[in-house]
Amino acid sequence: MARPPRFEISQLLDAAVRLAAEHGPSGVTMSAVAQAVGAPSGSLYHRFAGRPALLAEVWLRTVEGFQEGYFAALRSGDGPRAGGRAASRHVVAWSRTHPQEAALLLYGAHEFGRDDWPEEQLRRADEGNMRVRAAVAALAGALGLHGELGLERVSLAVVDLPLSLVRRHLRGGEPLPAHAEELAEQCTDALLTAD
């Protein structure tokens, strides 16, 4: 009977998140992750085909975890504006609760070597991006904001605006202020109010 693995994939990815938050994507190497958890390098190569697969998994686990709450927030509330406000608030609240993961996501997939990811991880990433675009388009339609300008407005309101608030503080090494969720929600609501 084979003995269970000593190091779970979640442990390895948690270590990769910590390394990425502290050193950026370049700090996430197979040997650095192995050292961080006290595992032999072979443990990582047994679970990931190489560094591109490790980088893809740490990125995808983080973004998919974020998106799960984001899509739930968009569907919540009483009507599309309330869902948009909740999604904006979620971006800030999730970043406050998950500062290392938020710091990781501020880099972007390409800085995590997206061009070298295995096909399966590329497919997952593309599907996630398509879900976000579809959700933003659906929200724009529900709000009566049509055309390219309407789509840009909704994208700004529920994606770019809350992310810029988070980015400014996290990149500056400051904690998010207590009023950040409320500010993001108010600004999003202003943008989502049809003319």
Rank of each mutant, 00 (worst) to 15 (best):
A15E: 02
H98W: 15
T62F: 15
L122S: 01
R61E: 08
F112I: 08
P80F: 06
Q11G: 12
P162L: 01
G24T: 03
G141K: 02
Q121T: 06
L13A: 08
P162E: 05
Y70C: 00
P99S: 08
V17D: 07
H98C: 13
A194T: 09
L170T: 13
P99L: 02
L192P: 08
A87W: 11
W59G: 01
H98P: 01
R114I: 05
Q35M: 00
L74A: 03
G69H: 09
W59A: 02
G77Y: 02
A109W: 03
V28N: 01
A72L: 15
M1A: 10
R114E: 13
A138N: 03
V28P: 00
A178G: 07
A194E: 13
A134H: 08
V159P: 05
A21V: 11
S10T: 08
A16W: 09
G50L: 15
G147D: 13
L104G: 01
G50R: 11
L139P: 15
L104I: 05
E181S: 06
A82D: 08
E68A: 14
D115L: 14
F66M: 05
R89G: 08
R81L: 07
G150E: 11
R167F: 06
F7A: 05
P52G: 12
H110P: 01
L44I: 14
Q35L: 07
D126W: 07
S95D: 02
G108E: 08
Y107V: 03
E8C: 04
V33S: 01
H110V: 10
Y107N: 08
E152K: 00
D189R: 10
G69F: 05
D116A: 15
S88I: 11
Q186D: 13
E101C: 04
G108I: 10
W94P: 00
A93Q: 08
A125H: 06
R133A: 12
S43T: 13
Q11L: 15
P5V: 04
V58N: 07
A157W: 03
E148D: 10
P5F: 02
A180K: 03
D189C: 06
E101I: 04
H23G: 15
S31A: 12
Y70A: 00
S10E: 13
R47C: 14
L74H: 04
E120N: 15
P99V: 04
D160R: 10
G141E: 05
P118Y: 03
R171W: 06
G50A: 14
L156Y: 11
S88R: 02
E119F: 00
L12H: 04
P5C: 07
Q121C: 09
G24N: 07
G108C: 13
A53L: 10
V136T: 11
A73H: 09
H46C: 15
S10I: 02
L106H: 05
E182G: 06
A138W: 00
P4K: 14
L149V: 15
S155P: 11
A180F: 01
V58P: 03
W94A: 03
P118A: 04
A140L: 04
R167Q: 14
S43N: 13
R153S: 11
H23L: 14
A16D: 06
E174S: 07
F112D: 01
Q186I: 10
V33Q: 00
H46N: 14
G144A: 07
E148R: 06
V92L: 00
